[in-house]
Design a protein around this nucleic acid. Structure first.
Lengths: 216, 216
DNA sequence: CAGGATCCGCCGCGATACTG
DNA sequence: CAGTATCGCGGCGGATCCTG
């Protein structure tokens, strides 16, 4: 039973044959931060339904994008992980035309962390653990490489804890109440907080209008 | 009547809200080489139906991706053209896992030319006109910039003519009958043909080795 | 003939209920 | 927890039909 295809000898069309169905790239996005179980994926992809997630995971497994780990969780194969540049290119385009979140928009630190993988400017060296609502992330910066994923870092130079909103506002200036500083608590070397935030300051995914104003 | 949205405050999800519908990115791909009229787009996107193309073009115009030129043709806006990096990232991923064309695959020099925009390795300086079946393309290489689009170059250093298959085989080694050299006719400085082809030699979109696709 | 619009049938998708 | 089963709707594909 062949899947629907564009039947075009073109790299883009071939990629879309595999990735173009609804939710597929968002599943890859969520798995970029580490393996997840079915129920975790279901929670991390608000709006998807259980039948569709099951169908997508089967298709993606058949295409070699994901595989089952020993503990039954789903993880990206090297082929699936090699989609990260494409996800970042699309994400950069999307972020550039994104304003404040609407009331309908769901927010999630996973998606912010994926964006931060892309936005890392390099030049920092530190190991951080960032945690909100009991869900920690590790952020290991070493020169021009940033390794970001779920789970605390084994040995952090700095540990930042706060509400998801506060953590998000630490790195994004497109969120409401930007005037007031986000309230987070910091353990470890507090002087590294500035380094951490600066390392992900907004660059080429600035919104269009500001770019043009500043470009003058 | 709002379009279907993932309602996620995430750059990728926002991008897919706009680009995720079927055919949208392929329309952008075809317009990267220059403006086209409705009937030209219809011919250049085999498989799309007239109603769907009309619908997509309206949506894309509403989203600011395309606009109508003075001669009624459709062309990319700066926002639409800014999708080129994302299209190249997806295209590179698709080309890497693409083998020989199947019997169902349609082939088209437009799609090859878009791939060549991405594959340009830099370091060449020449102006070429490549033509097949009466449809010319200009390829203007200046150092690290390659400008490729529909229409002949006003003053070409070299002019290459042949069947679409011969032109394609000039740049691709994944096509059948690779053993025999493609038959093209060259006008102008024939010594530039090697430079032209080498400038687009396959690099990081090489196909994956078989180890990833191990059939049981 | 270019540039669409209209109609119809199917299937991908979304929502809910159910099962091992 | 990890999926299946069922059902209704809307997006999509195919063909046809207008309109300058």
């Amino acid at each position: 039973m062949p899947r629907r295809s564009y039947d075009q000898y073109c790299g883009l069309a071939r990629a879309l044959d595999v990735l173009g169905e609804r939710w597929t790239l968002l599943v890859v996005r969520n798995l970029l931060l580490g393996p997840q179980r079915y129920s975790e994926l279901l929670r991390g992809l608000p709006g998807i339904t259980t039948n569709l997630l099951a169908k997508r995971l089967k298709e993606m497994e058949a295409e070699g994008l994901v595989e089952r780990a020993a503990d039954e969780s789903y993880r990206l194969t090297p082929l699936g992980a090699s989609l990260e540049p494409a996800i970042h290119a699309l994400g950069r385009w999307g972020w550039r035309r994104m304003g404040k979140p609407t009331r309908r928009d769901r927010r999630n630190l996973d998606w912010l962390m994926v964006a931060l993988r892309r936005r890392y400017r390099g030049g920092a060296t530190l190991t951080a653990t960032v945690e909100a609502d009991g869900s920690p992330y590790h952020m290991v910066l070493r020169g021009d490489r940033a390794e970001i994923g779920r789970g605390a870092a084994p040995a952090s130079d700095i540990r930042v804890t706060g509400t998801p909103d506060a953590i998000a506002r630490l790195f994004l200036d497109t969120l409401p109440d930007v005037g007031t500083p986000p309230v987070v608590s910091v353990d470890g070397d507090e002087s590294l907080l500035g380094t951490l935030v600066q390392a992900f300051s907004r660059g080429d995914d600035e919104p269009e209008e500001r770019r043009h104003v500043r470009a003058g």
